[in-house]
Write a protein that binds this DNA or RNA. Structure first.
Length: 377
DNA sequence: AATACGGGGTC
DNA sequence: GACCCAGTATT
């Protein structure tokens, strides 16, 4: 693809040099102390961190990353572990496909001796590694001159080089990649990329950017034009429709029935409280879902007592869980089922399942326990 | 080009 | 609530 001069004409050699120098100086003075930032960097540590950081904020990732690398200290230990263990470590973090892909990639790497690919094209061939993550690993772990653009970098560059030449969202993102490829220096490319991202995360924020603290304030076109608060434009989001879900917490002597979620789709491969999606929000439709669910679990619908509702909002849909609890007589064993302590003891489940179980612990279970003898005639 | 995919931070 | 986050893969 030819260089788009209209978007790059403002990127002179001297301006590039100034931006690099100011950014790196700022980074040296104020970079955060993150656990995967070691000297020299451990490629496995960087890889795990970058996958966890996909669409997930640093503060959320840090405790998960610590537990994960303690449990799986290297590619070999990750490859040797069953996916079940990996999902347990990932449980609650979200976007579980990342865990499946990380595991699959670890097995590919272990099968060819455990050495990491060092260049962007080879990295991109691994599952779960796209253009961004490949650039991050190549530059941060291996010191390659590779560019990257994430949400932070796109915001910083959109402002600094305002207006970009592209018309739509995708075109502007492409502009950012072109600028980033030009800007990234041969010396310290990893630090430069991290500086760009960290500037976006801590200074050049979506709302109310702290321009007074910004190392690029003198050369920021959006600030000069006074539009830094409106650039880039907010992405508009689909209004998520609500899905009604009936969940049944089946109890037996302090144990709870869990079901494994199917591969692919929401919460793929995680353990979950058995549930059924209702055809709609009407009482009849919710009732129908409860009947299907009770039949699947092997209890009478009349034995299922409502204990309350849980709402969860995901990116693309809202879920309302109608939570029921039932006591069962027999500890039925079945493929894809397991009986677990209500504390779960480290079984990987989603936050939604945690919330459902928490509701039962706090509300339903106490009452239901008191009633239990009466229900066992 | 649009959509699925979680969960939490922040205003 | 809206909007975003060190995105990727699929359709």
């Amino acid at each position: 693809m030819p260089i788009d001069e209209s978007s790059l004409s403002v990127l002179t050699r001297s301006r590039s040099a100034t931006i690099r120098a100011r950014l790196l100086a700022w980074y040296d003075a104020s970079r955060r102390d993150l656990p995967w930032r070691r000297d020299p960097p451990d490629p496995y540590h960087i890889w795990v961190s970058e996958v966890m950081l996909q669409q997930t904020q640093v503060a959320t990732v840090v405790p998960y990353w610590r537990r994960f690398v303690r449990r799986f200290p290297d590619v070999q230990s990750l490859a040797a572990a069953p996916i079940e263990e990996v999902l347990r470590a990932w449980g609650g973090l979200g976007y579980y496909r990342r865990a499946h892909q990380l595991h699959a990639a670890a097995r590919e790497l272990a099968a060819r001796g455990g050495t990491f690919p060092r260049d962007v094209p080879a990295l991109e061939r691994l599952p779960g590694i796209g253009r961004y993550t490949a650039g991050a690993i190549a530059s941060i772990a291996f010191g390659r001159r590779a560019a990257l653009v994430d949400g932070n970098v796109a915001r910083v560059l959109s402002r600094a080089f305002h207006p970009l030449s592209g018309a739509g969202d995708a075109e502007q993102r492409a502009d950012c990649w072109r600028i980033a490829e030009r800007l990234v220096p041969a010396e310290r490319p990893g630090d430069f990329n991290q500086a760009l991202m960290e500037l976006g995360a801590t200074c050049c924020t979506p709302a109310a950017p702290r321009c007074a603290d910004c190392p690029l304030r003198r050369s920021c076109a959006a600030r000069r034009a006074g539009v830094q608060d409106r650039v880039p434009p907010a992405r508009r989001r689909l209004a998520a429709s609500t899905v009604e879900v009936v969940a049944l917490v089946a109890l037996r002597r302090g144990e709870v029935l869990l079901e494994r979620r199917p591969a692919g789709g929401l919460w793929a491969g995680l353990w979950d409280v058995p549930s059924e999606v209702a055809a709609g929000a009407s009482a009849d439709e919710v009732r129908g879902a409860l009947e299907r669910l009770a039949s699947r679990v092997g209890v009478a619908p009349s034995a299922c007592r409502p204990v309350g509702e849980i709402r969860r909002t995901l990116t693309h849909r809202r879920l309302r869980f109608h939570v029921y609890v039932a006591w069962v007589d027999r500890r039925v064993r079945r493929d894809g089922w397991r009986w677990a302590k209500q504390s779960l003891d480290g079984i990987g489940v989603s936050r939604a399942a945690q919330a459902v179980l928490e509701l039962v612990r706090r509300g339903g279970a106490v009452r239901a326990t008191a009633r239990q003898p009466a229900r066992r005639d």
